[in-house]
Structures are given as C-alpha cells and as structure tokens.
C-alpha cells in the first residue's frame, strides 16, 4: 500500500507533518506552560472526524470550552466528552458522560469504548481521542497494574481502530522513573518547553517529522 492511501491525521495549526492512523502520542510539558492548548490543537478535527475527550482535571463543559478556544466547533453529532472529575454528571445535550472519579479506571474504559462504538456505528471512521491529563489517574490509582491495563486497552483500541490518541502528562508531576515507564504504551512523544519566552515543541519516535525544537505560538 502506498503512503498516499494510508489514512493520516493532519494538524492545521502546528508545525507537524500528518501522522499515521493508529498512532498514540504522549504530550509532555508543564501544566501551566501551554500543554493543554497544544493537546487541544492536536485534537482539532477535520469535518468528518470524531472526537472523544477524556477529561480528568477540568469539568466537561470547561474541557469543551478549551477545545472550542482553538477555533473549531464542538459538534455533538460526532464528538463526546468523558468527564472523569469528582462530582461530574451526565449532560445529554452536550454529549457529556460522567464517570464517578478519576480512580474508576474500569468506568472510564467502558464509557470510552462505548462512545467509540457509537461513533463507529454512526459511520465515523476517523476519531481523535484526547486524555487530559494522565496525572490524576496515576495519583488516585494505588497499584500500578490497573493503570497499565487501562493504558494498554485504550491505546490498543485507538491503534486497531485507526484512531489518533493524544494523552498528556507533566513530567514534573511524577518521579523520573515512574514518568519514564509511563511513556511505554505510547508510540511517540511530543515535548513542549519554553525558551526565552517562546514555546517550542519536539517530536520523538515519529517518522517523517521535522527534527529538533520547533517554535510555535499557543
């Protein structure tokens, strides 16, 4: 199969080449340094694409507002939110589905899979999944084994369904060894940093991407 026939995901507002369908990206950067904005830009959907947004720190409505701040509309016909924050509740009009807490990895996984199936049933073939952020899942999960089960299950579904996964974590929120082993289920990393008041990103593990640090405005 030639490269042109492979489905890819494009990033209109970022200095990145399209990535192959089935790729799981881990965005690493400071929580207050534009990581959220970068994740939302990676998730901005073309008109036929679907979006599943798993939010663990911000409520569902706020997560949608963050997505819409990229200038792209949130369309409930092909987009949904899994609100994993404490005290979250369903909102049918906004297609927000609540999970009791970020510690409920089983619940998050099942709602995610169920919504993925609904998009598939609606004929939406390309789906971007965002997980912002991993940190509460790590914090509230006592044993590490369920966290790996969850991450493998989520990234495995995205890989086989030709989706795009964009998860994020602040490396500073974990000890270095934990952070390094958490990167394993992902195919590639996009690092974000600030230098001389400007933001820069760098790709690691992705073929056909520009090398080194690239400037961007978030």
């Amino acid at each position: 199969m030639s490269q042109a026939q492979q489905p890819t995901y494009e990033f209109d507002s970022l200095p990145l080449e399209p990535v192959d369908a089935g790729t799981n990206l881990l965005v690493t950067g400071p929580s207050l340094g534009g990581t959220r904005e970068l994740v939302m830009r990676l998730l901005t959907c073309q008109s036929a694409e679907g979006l599943l947004l798993l939010t663990t720190e911000l409520g569902g409505e706020e997560a949608i507002a963050n997505y819409e701040a990229t200038g792209y509309p949130y369309a409930t016909s092909r987009m949904a939110v899994v609100d994993c924050t404490q005290g979250s509740h369903d909102d049918d009009d906004r297609n927000i589905h609540a999970v009791s807490a970020p510690s409920d990895l089983t619940g998050i996984g099942i709602v995610f899979s169920s919504l993925y199936e609904r998009l598939y049933g609606a004929g939406i073939e390309k789906v971007r999944t965002g997980l912002y952020t991993l940190a509460p899942l790590v914090m509230y999960t006592q044993e590490i084994q369920p966290l790996y089960r969850f991450l493998h299950t989520m990234t495995g579904r995205i890989r086989t369904a030709d989706g795009l996964g964009v998860s994020a974590i602040d490396p500073e929120s974990q000890d270095e060894k934990t952070f390094r082993t958490l990167t394993q289920p992902f195919d590639a990393q996009i690092e974000l940093r600030e230098r001389d008041g400007k933001q820069q990103l760098r790709c690691r593990g992705l073929p056909d991407q520009p090398e080194g640090w690239l400037s961007l405005d978030l």
Binding site: H97, L105, T106, G107, G109, S113, S114, E117, E143, P146
Partner: peptide
C-alpha cells in the same frame, strides 16, 4: 448501556467493552 453498568466496586478491574 454503559450508564447502567456499576463499576463502583470494581474500579481497578479494567475490561474492554463491545455492545
């Protein structure tokens, strides 16, 4: 439906879901 599935006591179990 996923909304009728109670995971409260099984938060760490983790399973795939296929309707």
């Amino acid at each position: 439906d996923h909304s009728a599935i109670d995971t409260e006591q099984f938060q760490d179990t983790v399973a795939e879901f296929m309707p």
